[in-house]
Design a binder for these strands. Structure first.
Length: 639
DNA sequence: AGAAGGATCCCCACACATGC
DNA sequence: GCATGTGTGGGGATCCTTCT
């Protein structure tokens, strides 16, 4: 058996035979006229059933290899014969005539292959190229399988066929012709074929038991594959039809709303990425196979040398794929939904204004997007003294209420529905921390200073974080290397276990007292140590026991860190899987490690940003200190 | 310094083919 | 019908660079 190569299905335009019967019929060749004559009698023709085709292919796989010819049979050709009702779509060429009722259905299988063969780029005619004709045209390999009595005289005597039969025999240059070759096809008319339905056209498909895949021959399997592809293509045709209608609808919408159709499409259409299935069209081939096929494809190689032609092919391919992908799925884009939400908000506001003006109705509402990632419009609407009411009664502005609602909804959404990545969690956590810090200090755009938490945040704004997970270092969430740590921290903040809290007056006094100059170097040193440890977010702890515990934790963490490093070194890279992820060099990991180690102990002077924040926060700071004497304590105690 | 985004590598889910 | 293998895209993890 010769190697099987994949044959690309050839699309052939259907021919309307009736056009030749009209008075103004175009001139046709003698051969075509013969075909038309045969086609007129097609009522009595019985094309082969699928099962017949399969049995024929079985015979190919059965191993009747006494004939050394390498017949080329396209799977697409075979498939076309299996399509009972699609014969009219076949071209008015030779195979069609052979397909006629004079032939037994089995015999009609192979000959028809030539009809689908003409390669679009080949300079030779289909008949010259495709040895498939040999089966029907009396070639050495096929003569035995086709009962001569069953052949119509037109076919047998056809000059073209004679020419074909001379060319057949597997010697034709086929490099540029994508075909499925099978030497067994030469013997296609073997004994298994004689038991067919004959000219009676009895469909034996119903009688044929369902065959196991393992019992199928190669050709048969290919056929089954092809059938699947055809089925899928049929489905896609239906979907594409729906798409066409949908596009027409979009056009009408564009016209009605005075928008350009391109704009409507932009809002409504969504082109999904091309999946592998689409790229490979269901005929999976390995890269190596593709490379081999490419090397063998002289014509394609020649085309590849021509830049312009190649460019043209690429453009055609891209256009085709784009059309395909657009036709497959159409969903409303998020953008369009955002616009809908925005317009809804406008409408609500208009309704509020109308109600307020006409009936004096006071009302308000808050809208927010579903998640941090979405751009859906968020805001509020209403009419009446809403802001004053909220400020007086709840001490919060409408804008701030919207922010809170937004944070709440986004957090809930993220927790409940979407699985956030580490980066997403880090981002969300950073936003939560900073937003809460802004809220409690009243300083706009104030951001957390992780490395100088005590100096720049606690000392200045008199606020601390309560509930920061003990086993997680106080660094920027984005610097956390462990996903679990990130998750814990995120959950702590999103669920409210971690939160900012104003210092009590007692805590403020304790905070201030060690800072007073004592002139004692030793004390200074100890204070420095305290400060460093204070950066580990232990200021909220009142007792010294917590310091001791945290020291212990730090030691444990250092030990485990050291152990991990030793393990990594010992394993010689076994554990470097995660460490070497990303494009960073090996050294960069070390660099980062050192960087992380440095962060908590860095004694860096205050930066301008912190100073700026201090200036901004001066009144706030005072207010907190004053209030701490009374209300604050009570509030905290109540809590 | 901290935040955000990009680049790269790797893992995983999925679809499909194949073998038993 | 189930298990396995293969190819693919999506997304996560990590590190680096740039911006504020």
């Amino acid at each position: 058996m010769s190697a099987i190569t994949w044959a690309e299905p050839v699309v052939i335009e259907p021919v309307d035979v009736l056009q030749f019967t009209r008075a103004d019929a175009p001139e046709v060749s003698k051969k075509t006229q013969e075909v038309i004559v045969l086609s007129d009698a097609s009522e009595n023709l019985y094309p082969p059933s699928t099962s017949q085709v399969i049995r024929y292919l079985d015979s190919l796989d059965a191993g009747n290899t006494d004939c050394g010819q390498s017949l080329q049979v396209s799977t697409a050709d075979v498939l076309r014969h299996a399509q009972l009702n699609n014969l009219a779509d076949l071209p008015n060429t030779l195979p069609r005539s052979i397909d006629s009722g004079q032939l037994s259905s089995e015999c009609a299988v192979a000959p028809c292959s030539s009809g689908a063969f003409p390669p679009p780029t080949s300079s030779t005619t289909a008949a010259d190229v495709s040895p498939g004709h040999a089966v029907a045209s009396g070639s050495p390999g096929s003569a035995s399988l086709v009962p001569s009595a069953s052949l119509s005289p037109e076919v047998v005597n056809n000059a073209d066929l004679a020419n074909v039969s001379q060319n057949s025999g597997g010697a034709a240059p086929l490099e540029s012709v994508p075909t499925v070759s099978s030497s067994g096809a030469a013997n296609a008319g073997g004994s298994s074929m004689t038991g067919g339905s004959g000219s009676g056209g009895v469909d034996i498909e119903a009688c044929a038991p369902r065959r196991k895949r393992s019992e199928m021959g190669i050709e048969e399997r290919n056929l089954m594959k092809q059938l699947g592809v055809e089925k899928q293509e049929k489905l896609m045709d239906a979907i594409n039809n729906a798409t066409t209608e949908y596009k027409a609808k979009l056009e009408s919408i564009a016209k009605e709303n005075s928008y350009k159709s391109a704009r409507i499409k932009q809002l409504a259409l969504h082109a999904p990425p091309i999946k592998s299935k689409e790229l490979n069209e269901g005929h999976r081939k390995t890269l190596e196979e593709i490379q081999v096929a490419l090397r063998q494809d002289v014509e394609l190689l020649a085309v590849m040398k021509d830049e312009e032609e190649m460019k043209q092919y690429c453009e055609e391919y891209c256009n085709e794929k784009e059309a395909e992908s657009k036709g497959k799925v159409q969903t409303m884009s998020g953008k369009s939904m955002a616009q809908v939400a925005s317009k809804t908000l406008d409408l609500l506001q208009a309704q509020c204004n109308y109600a307020f003006l006409n009936s004096g109705t006071n009302l308000f509402g808050v809208t927010t997007h579903g998640s941090f990632e979405k751009d859906t419009a968020k805001g509020f609407f209403g009419a009446g003294p809403v802001d004053g009411f909220l400020c007086e009664m709840f001490g919060i502005s409408l804008a701030k209420l919207g922010e809170c609602f937004d944070a709440y909804v986004c957090t809930k959404e993220a927790m409940g529905k979407k699985k956030l990545s580490k980066a997403d969690m880090a981002k969300a956590t950073v936003k939560l921390i900073n937003r809460c810090l802004e809220e409690i200090t009243g300083v706009k755009d104030l951001v957390m200073a992780y490395s100088k938490y005590k100096k720049n945040i606690v000392a200045i704004y008199k606020v601390v974080i309560d509930g920061w997970p003990e086993d997680i270092p106080c660094v920027s969430p984005q610097l956390l290397t462990k996903v679990d740590n990130m998750k814990d921290l995120y959950e702590a903040w999103s669920e409210g276990h971690a939160a900012w809290r104003k210092l009590t007056s007692k805590e403020v006094r304790e905070l201030k007292s060690p800072r007073e100059p004592t002139g004692n170097c030793k004390q200074k040193r100890s204070q420095k140590v305290d400060n460093n440890e204070g950066d580990e977010l232990q200021l909220s702890e009142d007792n010294e026991g917590s310091h001791a515990r945290n020291k212990k934790l730090n030691v444990t963490a250092q030990k485990s860190h050291k152990r991990r490093r030793v393990e990594e070194e010992n394993n010689g890279g076994a554990n470097k899987k995660s460490a070497r992820k990303g494009k960073g060099k090996d050294g960069s990991q070390e660099k980062t490690r050192e960087k992380k180690k440095e962060v908590p102990v860095a004694a860096i002077p205050r930066v301008s940003k912190a100073r700026k924040a201090k200036v901004n926060a001066a009144p706030i700071s005072d207010g907190i200190a004053d209030n701490n004497k009374g209300e604050s304590n009570e509030y905290l105690e109540d809590e």
